[in-house]
Simulated assay, not measured.
Amino acid sequence: MKYSVLDLAPVPEGADAATALRNTGELARHAEALGYHRYWLAEHHNMKGIASAATAVLIGHVAGLTQRIRVGAGGIMLPNHAPLAVAEQFGTLATLYPGRIDLGLGRAPGGDMAVMRALRLRQDAGDRFPDDVAELMGYFGPEMPGAVVSAHPGQGTNVPLWMLGSSLYGAQVAAHFGLPYAFASHFAPAALEQAAEIYRQKFQPSDHLQKPHFMLAVNVFAADTDAKGVRLRSSMQQAFYRLRTGQPGQLPRPVDRIEDVIPAANLGAVNEALRITAVGSPATVRRQLTELIARHQPDEVILTGQIHDHAARMRSFEIAAGAMRNLDTGLVA
Protein backbone atom coordinates (compact mmCIF):
# COMPACT_ATOMS: atom_id res chain seq x y z
CA MET A 1 0.00 0.00 0.00
CA LYS A 2 1.29 3.46 -0.91
CA TYR A 3 1.95 5.75 2.03
CA SER A 4 2.49 9.50 1.89
CA VAL A 5 3.13 12.60 4.03
CA LEU A 6 0.84 15.55 4.74
CA ASP A 7 2.87 18.50 6.03
CA LEU A 8 1.52 21.82 7.34
CA ALA A 9 5.06 23.19 7.86
CA PRO A 10 4.42 23.63 11.60
CA VAL A 11 6.17 26.49 13.38
CA PRO A 12 7.25 25.21 16.82
CA GLU A 13 7.17 27.44 19.86
CA GLY A 14 10.52 29.18 20.13
CA ALA A 15 11.17 29.00 16.38
CA ASP A 16 10.11 30.98 13.30
CA ALA A 17 8.79 30.45 9.78
CA ALA A 18 12.28 30.17 8.33
CA THR A 19 12.97 27.25 10.67
CA ALA A 20 9.67 25.63 9.74
CA LEU A 21 10.36 25.87 6.01
CA ARG A 22 13.86 24.51 6.47
CA ASN A 23 12.41 21.62 8.45
CA THR A 24 9.92 20.92 5.66
CA GLY A 25 12.72 20.64 3.12
CA GLU A 26 14.66 18.23 5.32
CA LEU A 27 11.59 16.12 6.04
CA ALA A 28 10.72 15.94 2.33
CA ARG A 29 14.16 14.59 1.45
CA HIS A 30 13.94 12.17 4.37
CA ALA A 31 10.48 11.00 3.26
CA GLU A 32 11.71 10.38 -0.28
CA ALA A 33 14.57 8.25 1.04
CA LEU A 34 12.12 6.29 3.21
CA GLY A 35 9.88 5.36 0.28
CA TYR A 36 6.98 7.74 0.82
CA HIS A 37 4.96 8.13 -2.38
CA ARG A 38 3.65 11.71 -2.06
CA TYR A 39 4.53 14.81 -0.08
CA TRP A 40 1.54 17.12 0.25
CA LEU A 41 1.33 20.61 1.72
CA ALA A 42 -1.82 22.35 2.93
CA GLU A 43 -3.17 25.87 2.47
CA HIS A 44 -3.95 27.70 5.73
CA HIS A 45 -4.00 31.44 6.39
CA ASN A 46 -3.44 33.77 9.33
CA MET A 47 -1.97 31.02 11.52
CA LYS A 48 1.28 31.66 13.36
CA GLY A 49 1.83 27.94 13.76
CA ILE A 50 1.59 27.03 10.05
CA ALA A 51 4.03 28.22 7.37
CA SER A 52 2.42 26.69 4.25
CA ALA A 53 0.13 29.61 3.33
CA ALA A 54 1.74 30.17 -0.10
CA THR A 55 1.23 26.52 -0.92
CA ALA A 56 2.16 26.50 -4.61
CA VAL A 57 5.40 28.34 -3.86
CA LEU A 58 6.35 25.82 -1.18
CA ILE A 59 5.45 22.90 -3.45
CA GLY A 60 7.90 24.23 -6.01
CA HIS A 61 10.58 24.52 -3.32
CA VAL A 62 10.05 20.95 -2.11
CA ALA A 63 9.94 19.55 -5.65
CA GLY A 64 13.26 21.27 -6.35
CA LEU A 65 14.85 19.69 -3.28
CA THR A 66 13.72 16.17 -4.19
CA GLN A 67 14.01 13.93 -7.23
CA ARG A 68 11.31 11.25 -7.37
CA ILE A 69 8.62 11.73 -4.74
CA ARG A 70 5.33 13.22 -5.93
CA VAL A 71 4.72 16.69 -4.47
CA GLY A 72 1.37 18.39 -4.26
CA ALA A 73 -1.36 20.23 -2.45
CA GLY A 74 -3.43 18.66 0.24
CA GLY A 75 -4.88 20.99 -0.58
CA ILE A 76 -5.54 24.21 -2.42
CA MET A 77 -8.73 25.86 -1.17
CA LEU A 78 -10.30 26.53 -4.55
CA PRO A 79 -12.84 29.23 -3.50
CA ASN A 80 -9.82 31.39 -2.54
CA HIS A 81 -8.51 31.44 -6.13
CA ALA A 82 -9.58 31.89 -9.71
CA PRO A 83 -9.41 28.49 -11.46
CA LEU A 84 -7.26 30.04 -14.20
CA ALA A 85 -4.68 31.22 -11.66
CA VAL A 86 -4.53 27.75 -10.06
CA ALA A 87 -4.17 26.16 -13.50
CA GLU A 88 -1.29 28.47 -14.39
CA GLN A 89 0.47 27.86 -11.07
CA PHE A 90 0.17 24.08 -11.17
CA GLY A 91 0.67 23.95 -14.92
CA THR A 92 3.97 25.71 -14.34
CA LEU A 93 4.89 23.26 -11.57
CA ALA A 94 3.97 20.30 -13.77
CA THR A 95 6.07 21.72 -16.59
CA LEU A 96 9.06 22.18 -14.29
CA TYR A 97 8.61 18.79 -12.58
CA PRO A 98 6.76 16.56 -15.09
CA GLY A 99 4.97 13.54 -13.69
CA ARG A 100 5.47 14.60 -10.06
CA ILE A 101 2.78 17.20 -9.23
CA ASP A 102 -0.60 16.51 -7.56
CA LEU A 103 -3.41 19.00 -6.96
CA GLY A 104 -5.80 18.29 -4.12
CA LEU A 105 -8.80 20.64 -3.91
CA GLY A 106 -10.78 21.76 -0.89
CA ARG A 107 -13.87 23.90 -0.49
CA ALA A 108 -13.15 25.54 2.88
CA PRO A 109 -11.43 28.95 2.98
CA GLY A 110 -8.52 27.79 5.12
CA GLY A 111 -9.27 30.46 7.71
CA ASP A 112 -12.02 32.40 9.49
CA MET A 113 -14.31 35.22 8.39
CA ALA A 114 -11.52 37.78 8.82
CA VAL A 115 -9.39 35.73 6.43
CA MET A 116 -12.23 35.57 3.93
CA ARG A 117 -12.53 39.36 4.01
CA ALA A 118 -8.76 39.75 3.61
CA LEU A 119 -8.86 37.41 0.62
CA ARG A 120 -11.74 39.47 -0.83
CA LEU A 121 -14.04 36.46 -0.75
CA ARG A 122 -17.81 36.60 -0.71
CA GLN A 123 -19.59 34.43 1.85
CA ASP A 124 -21.08 32.38 -0.96
CA ALA A 125 -17.69 31.81 -2.64
CA GLY A 126 -17.93 28.06 -2.05
CA ASP A 127 -21.27 27.76 -3.82
CA ARG A 128 -19.56 27.69 -7.21
CA PHE A 129 -17.20 24.91 -6.19
CA PRO A 130 -18.38 22.19 -8.62
CA ASP A 131 -18.38 24.68 -11.52
CA ASP A 132 -14.91 25.89 -10.55
CA VAL A 133 -13.65 22.29 -10.45
CA ALA A 134 -15.04 21.66 -13.93
CA GLU A 135 -13.45 24.88 -15.23
CA LEU A 136 -10.10 23.93 -13.71
CA MET A 137 -10.23 20.48 -15.26
CA GLY A 138 -10.77 22.10 -18.64
CA TYR A 139 -7.64 24.22 -18.26
CA PHE A 140 -5.50 21.12 -17.69
CA GLY A 141 -6.94 19.14 -20.61
CA PRO A 142 -6.24 19.53 -24.33
CA GLU A 143 -6.74 23.02 -25.69
CA MET A 144 -10.24 23.43 -27.06
CA PRO A 145 -10.63 24.95 -30.53
CA GLY A 146 -12.07 28.42 -30.27
CA ALA A 147 -11.40 28.74 -26.54
CA VAL A 148 -11.23 32.40 -25.55
CA VAL A 149 -9.04 31.69 -22.50
CA SER A 150 -6.47 28.93 -22.02
CA ALA A 151 -3.87 28.25 -19.33
CA HIS A 152 -0.27 28.59 -20.50
CA PRO A 153 1.47 26.72 -18.92
CA GLY A 154 -1.29 24.36 -17.90
CA GLN A 155 -3.14 23.28 -21.03
CA GLY A 156 -2.37 19.66 -21.81
CA THR A 157 -0.43 19.00 -18.60
CA ASN A 158 -3.24 16.83 -17.20
CA VAL A 159 -2.24 17.55 -13.60
CA PRO A 160 -3.88 14.82 -11.47
CA LEU A 161 -6.73 16.25 -9.38
CA TRP A 162 -7.82 14.94 -5.99
CA MET A 163 -10.91 15.91 -4.06
CA LEU A 164 -10.41 16.60 -0.35
CA GLY A 165 -13.12 16.66 2.26
CA SER A 166 -14.22 16.27 5.86
CA SER A 167 -17.93 15.91 5.11
CA LEU A 168 -20.29 14.12 2.76
CA TYR A 169 -20.21 17.01 0.28
CA GLY A 170 -16.66 16.33 -0.88
CA ALA A 171 -17.42 12.63 -1.25
CA GLN A 172 -20.29 13.41 -3.60
CA VAL A 173 -18.26 15.85 -5.68
CA ALA A 174 -15.38 13.38 -5.97
CA ALA A 175 -17.79 10.61 -7.03
CA HIS A 176 -19.52 12.86 -9.56
CA PHE A 177 -16.29 13.88 -11.31
CA GLY A 178 -14.67 10.45 -11.01
CA LEU A 179 -11.73 11.74 -8.99
CA PRO A 180 -9.69 10.17 -6.19
CA TYR A 181 -10.87 11.23 -2.74
CA ALA A 182 -8.83 12.04 0.39
CA PHE A 183 -10.78 12.32 3.63
CA ALA A 184 -9.56 14.56 6.47
CA SER A 185 -9.92 11.81 9.05
CA HIS A 186 -6.88 13.09 10.95
CA PHE A 187 -8.94 15.91 12.49
CA ALA A 188 -12.60 15.37 11.49
CA PRO A 189 -13.41 11.65 11.56
CA ALA A 190 -17.10 11.90 12.42
CA ALA A 191 -18.31 11.31 8.85
CA LEU A 192 -15.45 9.04 7.79
CA GLU A 193 -17.36 5.79 7.33
CA GLN A 194 -20.38 7.41 5.69
CA ALA A 195 -18.29 9.56 3.35
CA ALA A 196 -16.26 6.57 2.18
CA GLU A 197 -19.42 4.58 1.55
CA ILE A 198 -21.10 7.38 -0.42
CA TYR A 199 -17.99 7.95 -2.49
CA ARG A 200 -17.65 4.28 -3.40
CA GLN A 201 -21.35 3.78 -4.11
CA LYS A 202 -21.85 6.91 -6.23
CA PHE A 203 -18.50 6.89 -8.05
CA GLN A 204 -18.77 7.49 -11.80
CA PRO A 205 -15.82 6.24 -13.85
CA SER A 206 -14.07 9.01 -15.76
CA ASP A 207 -11.10 9.67 -18.01
CA HIS A 208 -9.18 10.35 -14.80
CA LEU A 209 -10.09 7.21 -12.86
CA GLN A 210 -11.92 3.99 -13.64
CA LYS A 211 -12.71 2.91 -10.08
CA PRO A 212 -12.84 4.63 -6.67
CA HIS A 213 -9.57 5.47 -4.98
CA PHE A 214 -9.93 6.43 -1.32
CA MET A 215 -7.16 7.90 0.83
CA LEU A 216 -7.24 7.73 4.64
CA ALA A 217 -5.42 10.44 6.63
CA VAL A 218 -3.83 9.25 9.88
CA ASN A 219 -1.95 11.08 12.62
CA VAL A 220 1.25 9.31 13.65
CA PHE A 221 3.34 9.97 16.75
CA ALA A 222 5.95 7.24 16.77
CA ALA A 223 8.92 6.96 19.09
CA ASP A 224 11.12 4.35 20.69
CA THR A 225 8.60 3.72 23.48
CA ASP A 226 4.85 4.10 23.96
CA ALA A 227 5.39 6.75 26.64
CA LYS A 228 7.56 8.87 24.36
CA GLY A 229 4.98 8.63 21.58
CA VAL A 230 2.21 9.78 23.93
CA ARG A 231 4.34 12.75 24.96
CA LEU A 232 4.96 13.73 21.32
CA ARG A 233 1.22 13.66 20.66
CA SER A 234 0.58 16.22 23.41
CA SER A 235 1.80 19.06 21.17
CA MET A 236 -0.91 18.43 18.59
CA GLN A 237 -3.54 17.92 21.28
CA GLN A 238 -2.66 21.32 22.75
CA ALA A 239 -2.61 22.99 19.34
CA PHE A 240 -6.03 21.57 18.45
CA TYR A 241 -7.50 22.63 21.79
CA ARG A 242 -6.11 26.15 21.45
CA LEU A 243 -7.42 26.47 17.90
CA ARG A 244 -10.91 25.33 18.89
CA THR A 245 -11.00 27.76 21.82
CA GLY A 246 -9.82 30.79 19.82
CA GLN A 247 -6.21 30.72 21.01
CA PRO A 248 -4.19 29.66 17.95
CA GLY A 249 -0.45 30.06 17.99
CA GLN A 250 2.80 28.27 17.37
CA LEU A 251 3.01 24.51 17.91
CA PRO A 252 3.28 24.00 21.70
CA ARG A 253 6.06 22.14 23.42
CA PRO A 254 5.11 18.63 24.58
CA VAL A 255 4.06 17.95 28.16
CA ASP A 256 4.21 14.86 30.34
CA ARG A 257 0.56 15.05 31.42
CA ILE A 258 -1.92 16.41 28.91
CA GLU A 259 -4.55 16.47 31.67
CA ASP A 260 -2.62 19.31 33.31
CA VAL A 261 -3.03 21.67 30.34
CA ILE A 262 -6.36 20.73 28.75
CA PRO A 263 -9.47 20.80 30.96
CA ALA A 264 -11.18 17.44 31.35
CA ALA A 265 -14.35 18.92 29.85
CA ASN A 266 -12.46 19.57 26.59
CA LEU A 267 -9.97 16.71 26.44
CA GLY A 268 -12.54 14.11 25.44
CA ALA A 269 -13.64 16.17 22.42
CA VAL A 270 -10.02 16.79 21.40
CA ASN A 271 -9.19 13.09 21.56
CA GLU A 272 -12.34 12.18 19.64
CA ALA A 273 -11.44 14.59 16.84
CA LEU A 274 -7.91 13.14 16.70
CA ARG A 275 -8.92 9.50 17.15
CA ILE A 276 -7.61 8.36 13.76
CA THR A 277 -4.14 8.20 15.24
CA ALA A 278 -1.31 5.74 15.74
CA VAL A 279 0.84 6.57 18.75
CA GLY A 280 3.64 4.78 20.54
CA SER A 281 6.51 2.40 19.90
CA PRO A 282 7.28 0.83 16.50
CA ALA A 283 5.33 -2.31 17.40
CA THR A 284 2.35 -0.36 18.73
CA VAL A 285 2.23 1.97 15.73
CA ARG A 286 2.41 -0.96 13.33
CA ARG A 287 -0.47 -2.68 15.11
CA GLN A 288 -2.61 0.46 15.22
CA LEU A 289 -1.99 1.29 11.55
CA THR A 290 -2.85 -2.28 10.61
CA GLU A 291 -6.12 -2.07 12.55
CA LEU A 292 -7.09 1.30 11.03
CA ILE A 293 -6.43 0.02 7.51
CA ALA A 294 -8.30 -3.22 8.15
CA ARG A 295 -11.31 -1.29 9.42
CA HIS A 296 -11.52 1.44 6.78
CA GLN A 297 -10.05 -0.40 3.75
CA PRO A 298 -8.37 2.62 2.11
CA ASP A 299 -6.59 2.35 -1.21
CA GLU A 300 -3.85 4.61 0.09
CA VAL A 301 -2.77 6.19 3.38
CA ILE A 302 -1.42 9.67 4.07
CA LEU A 303 0.35 10.23 7.38
CA THR A 304 0.69 13.46 9.29
CA GLY A 305 1.72 14.52 12.78
CA GLN A 306 2.62 17.88 14.22
CA ILE A 307 5.60 17.23 16.48
CA HIS A 308 7.48 20.05 18.20
CA ASP A 309 11.01 18.64 17.99
CA HIS A 310 12.25 18.33 14.42
CA ALA A 311 14.51 15.34 15.09
CA ALA A 312 11.67 13.51 16.83
CA ARG A 313 9.39 14.29 13.88
CA MET A 314 11.92 12.88 11.43
CA ARG A 315 12.22 9.76 13.58
CA SER A 316 8.43 9.40 13.82
CA PHE A 317 8.04 9.33 10.04
CA GLU A 318 10.93 6.89 9.83
CA ILE A 319 9.21 4.51 12.25
CA ALA A 320 5.90 4.98 10.43
CA ALA A 321 7.48 4.09 7.09
CA GLY A 322 8.84 0.90 8.61
CA ALA A 323 5.40 0.08 9.95
CA MET A 324 3.77 0.64 6.57
CA ARG A 325 6.34 -1.56 4.86
CA ASN A 326 5.69 -4.32 7.38
CA LEU A 327 1.93 -4.20 7.93
CA ASP A 328 0.22 -7.25 9.34
CA THR A 329 -1.15 -8.15 5.90
CA GLY A 330 -3.22 -11.00 7.28
CA LEU A 331 -5.22 -8.60 9.43
CA VAL A 332 -5.47 -6.02 6.62
CA ALA A 333 -6.79 -8.66 4.22
Rank of each mutant, 00 (worst) to 15 (best):
Y199F: 13
R200C: 08
Q201L: 07
K202N: 12
K202T: 12
K202D: 12
F203T: 04
F203Y: 09
Q204G: 00
Q204N: 06
H208S: 07
L209G: 04
L209H: 01
L209W: 04
F214I: 03
L216C: 10
L216T: 11
V218S: 05
V220H: 01
V220S: 02
A222S: 10
A222Y: 07
D224H: 13
D226W: 00
A227G: 01
G229M: 03
V230P: 00
L232N: 05
R233C: 04
S234R: 09
M236V: 09
M236Q: 14
Q237P: 00
Q237V: 06
Q238L: 10
A239D: 05
F240I: 02
Q247K: 15
G249L: 09
G249H: 08
G249E: 06
P254K: 11
V255H: 06
R257N: 15
R257I: 01
I258L: 12
I258M: 11
E259C: 05
V261C: 11
I262F: 12
P263K: 13
A264Q: 14
A264L: 10
A264I: 04
N266V: 00
L267E: 13
G268S: 14
G268F: 05
A269R: 15
E272D: 15
E272L: 10
A273I: 10
L274F: 06
L274I: 05
R275F: 11
V279A: 13
A283E: 15
A283H: 08
V285K: 06
V285L: 04
T290Y: 07
T290S: 15
I293N: 04
A294K: 03
H296C: 09
E300D: 15
L303K: 10
Q306R: 04
Q306V: 00
R313E: 03
S316G: 07
F317V: 11
F317W: 09
E318Y: 02
A320E: 03
A320P: 04
R325I: 03
N326P: 09
N326F: 02
N326I: 05
N326C: 10
L327H: 01
A333W: 02
A333F: 03
